[in-house]
């Protein structure tokens, strides 16, 4: 079963003086159980708008969506998920501990479990020392951590996170990546938006790129990375063999000991055969690939 099922989702905002913004122009997207999905897109692409529609905060102009089979907007559709809004804000007169208890109660957690889970998540997100202070005095990153903690307290099956890494220090980001990888191991599904391709490459199974309200790409990270292979960097020893035989290949770099050739994917077998025939010693082969970042930039660039 799909945990998220979006069909033809459109959203038009009507601003002041009847100006209209088409924030979403027909999004179709299905997220399977156990999948870690990265929702990439430049600023203003419609990531948060999609997520707000899913959470029933705004109503789509057209199209439908369901979360675990429940129509969006219903209380039932929010009953089994952990949601982190973009730049979250929580009742700032409460302490982190009180807020987590409040969230747990809305998910109808039994008292003993709630106490145990509140302690666990506070420790996991390094909020333990601050847990008895009102959130009014928290730093941006600490509030973000509370946001993550409140998605995890009831151990939901699906996480919907709008920029989970935003505002976190490198240690915090690494922690979030570890948390997501751990969730994956436990068969949970995660749908998160970001503009940082590196995060996606490290943790996601699949990625969707949204540009100006349209889903421009949708593929597994593995596929993208594989398709991204442009060729190989082959390092050879300068002192051995006849390098003139390899004149057909571009030389990328040379120094006193090595010559490095750039070999396109199609020419690899020929190169290796020639090198063998002319006793050229190959010391290193490295794959040259476009990373997700350039893939992302290419797609965004195409949209312009």
């Amino acid at each position: 079963m799909n945990v998220i099922d979006i069909t033809g989702l459109c959203k038009q905002f009507t601003g002041k003086r009847m100006t209209k913004v088409d924030a979403l122009k027909g999004i179709d997207l299905k997220i399977a159980q156990g999948e870690i999905f990265g929702f990439l897109g430049p600023n203003g692409a419609g990531k948060s708008t999609t997520i707000k529609c899913l959470m029933g905060l705004i109503r789509p102009t057209a199209g439908t969506a369901a979360i675990m089979g429940e129509q969006i907007g219903s209380v039932a559709s929010r009953a089994k998920i952990g949601f982190l809004p973009e730049n979250p804000a929580f009742y700032d007169y409460l302490t982190a501990e009180e807020y987590l208890r409040f969230v747990g109660k809305t998910f109808k957690m039994p008292e003993a479990l709630l106490t145990r889970r509140a302690d666990e998540t506070l420790k996991q997100l390094e909020l333990w020392d601050a847990r008895k202070r009102p959130m009014r005095g928290y730093s941006k990153g600490m509030v973000q951590r509370v946001g993550l903690a409140q998605t995890m307290i009831h151990d939901p099956d699906l996480y919907i996170l709008d920029e989970p890494m935003s505002g976190l220090d490198p240690i915090g980001r690494a922690l979030v990546k570890d948390i997501i990888l751990d969730l994956k191991k436990r068969g949970k599904s995660v749908f998160f938006s970001t503009h940082i391709t590196d995060d996606v490459e490290k943790v996601c199974d699949r990625v969707g790129v949204i540009v100006k309200g349209q889903l421009e790409a949708l593929d597994s990270v593995e596929n993208i990375v594989r398709q991204g292979i442009e060729g190989y960097m082959v390092q050879t020893r300068l002192s051995r063999g006849n390098h003139e035989a390899l004149g057909g290949f571009a030389v990328a770099r040379t120094n006193e000991t090595f010559i490095e050739y750039f070999v396109p994917v199609a020419g690899f077998n020929e190169f290796m055969a020639l090198a063998g025939q002319h006793s050229v010693e190959v010391t290193l082969v490295e794959t040259k690939r476009k990373d997700l970042e350039s893939f992302f930039l290419e797609i965004v660039g195409k949209g312009k």
Binding site: F83, P88, A89
Partner: peptide, 14 residues
């Protein structure tokens, strides 16, 4: 105004 609604109305509350 303080954007509490995003976090609270995302919970399973009507």
């Amino acid at each position: 105004e303080r954007r509490y609604t995003f976090s609270v109305l995302g919970l399973p509350l009507s």
